[in-house]
């Protein structure tokens, strides 16, 4: 029973308390660059789930074999391998999404969330916990990106996941799907999450 609550805690922390984008300010580049629609944010999130969970599994399994001195290069190779797999799979099976995400899929390699989790968690914990931790972090990342994409798409085009939400008379706020909209929305989201957190603490 005790381990069960431990696992769920490991998972939940990534969703809110240690949410990579909103709380830890990691992985901001993709969070800003690909969230001009909900589906793009969601797909980017899935690519990160795939990469992070698999890298964490491998590195956690091999944590006693990898010498300390070369751990960073080893992590990087493992991560880069899975990122390439994700990239090629996207290009082969969902080419339209792959085109929209562009070079930001290979850039997952340098996404601090992934290397950060290997260094801080997977290299020190058993496989089960590492997978749960990776799932929590990457799902938290996915949810944040999807919400960010949904807000921008709703205000900028009037749709969410390409489904018309706003009434026909709504004049889209073009700027939301452009670069400034990304900064503004993310800034407001981080601010609001700070506020919610402070309220919860009280």
């Amino acid at each position: 029973m005790a381990t069960k609550t431990g696992y769920s805690k490991e998972f939940i922390k990534g969703l809110w308390d240690e949410n990579p984008v909103l709380r830890m300010l990691l992985g901001l580049c993709p969070a800003l660059a690909v969230t001009n629609s909900a589906i793009n944010g969601f797909s980017m999130g899935l690519a990160v789930v795939f990469t992070l969970v698999l890298s964490s599994t491998i590195i956690s399994l091999a944590r006693n074999i990898i010498p300390k001195e070369v751990r960073i290069p080893t992590f990087i190779i493992v991560i880069a391998t899975f990122v390439t797999i994700a990239d090629k799979m996207l290009a082969a099976y969902v080419p339209d999404i792959s085109k929209a995400l562009g070079p930001f899929v290979p850039l997952i390699v340098v996404n601090c969330i992934i290397l950060g989790r290997q260094e801080a968690f997977a290299s020190k914990n058993p496989v089960g916990r590492s997978i749960i931790d990776a799932l929590g972090m990457s799902v938290g990342f996915t949810i944040t990106l999807t919400i960010l994409g949904a807000i921008r798409e709703l205000l900028g085009v009037g749709t969410i996941f390409a489904v018309q939400i706003m009434p026909q008379s709504f004049e889209p706020w073009m700027v939301m799907v452009l670069q400034p909209g990304a900064f503004l929305t993310l800034g407001l989201m981080i601010g609001i999450s700070n506020w919610l957190n402070a309220r919860r603490a009280k």
């Binding site: 400034p180 900064f183 601010g191 700070n194």
Partner: peptide, 12 residues
């Protein structure tokens, strides 16, 4: 961070 983002938005 939040205000930095918002300022960056204005810069963008």
């Amino acid at each position: 961070a939040p205000i930095t983002m918002i300022v960056a938005g204005c810069l963008a």
